[in-house]
Amino acid sequence: MSVGRVVLVIRFEKQLNGDCGLCGTTLEDRDHLFLDCSFSRNVWSSVLQLCGWHMDVFNWVTELRLAIDMLKGGSLLTVILQLAYNSFIYFIWKEMSVWIFQSRHSSPQDIVQNIKESVKWRLMEKPLYRNSFVATSLCINWGLD
């Protein structure tokens, strides 16, 4: 268990064994929480499918490297993936916090819906150019009509 987590556990008098609160299978660490965990892997896989990418999800380090290498430019797909990646990190972390402090769980589908809403709100003010089949499909999948 990390030092920061121990401090939180002591402060809020919550007893934790260090296992992942999302899947309960192994000790939680950054790599596990963000993509080794079956819960977060399911969420990220669903996000990629919304973008039209049907591919395997790798571990945290590999996905981060892919994001750094591939998410450059200003296409609608790139912008959505950048926003979705940031939202994914936020909502997975938030889900873990809710589990720790409120003992509540959301489904992976709920988290995907939260990510969709976050992306939608961030793109609301921007002009969306539907100049290709890919852009049109993205707008439909993400509810940006």
Rank of each mutant, 00 (worst) to 15 (best):
V43H: 02
G24W: 05
I10H: 09
Y90K: 08
W93F: 00
M96D: 12
S103D: 14
P108H: 00
N114F: 06
H105S: 12
F58Y: 02
F88T: 01
A84N: 03
L144W: 09
V43G: 02
E63A: 06
Y85T: 06
M124Q: 07
F34V: 04
Q82Y: 08
V79T: 08
L16C: 11
G24P: 05
L33E: 00
L22V: 03
D36I: 03
M96K: 05
L81M: 15
T62G: 04
R122K: 12
K116S: 06
I100D: 12
A84D: 06
A84M: 02
G52S: 13
V134A: 15
L27Y: 07
D31E: 09
G4M: 08
F91G: 02
M1G: 06
V57M: 00
Q102K: 14
V57I: 01
Q113W: 07
L76V: 04
S40Q: 03
G73I: 07
W99I: 05
C139W: 09
L128C: 09
N59C: 08
L33K: 01
D19E: 07
E13W: 06
F88I: 00
H105T: 10
F101A: 04
N59I: 03
I10P: 00
C37W: 03
S118L: 04
E95C: 00
D29A: 14
L50R: 08
D36H: 10
S75D: 11
G143T: 06
V9C: 14
I68K: 13
G18M: 03
R30V: 15
S106H: 13
P127F: 13
D56W: 09
F12K: 13
V134I: 15
V6P: 02
T26H: 08
T136V: 08
A67H: 11
L35F: 02
K120F: 06
L77D: 12
F12V: 05
E13R: 14
M96W: 13
L144F: 07
E117A: 10
L64H: 04
G74L: 15
W53V: 07
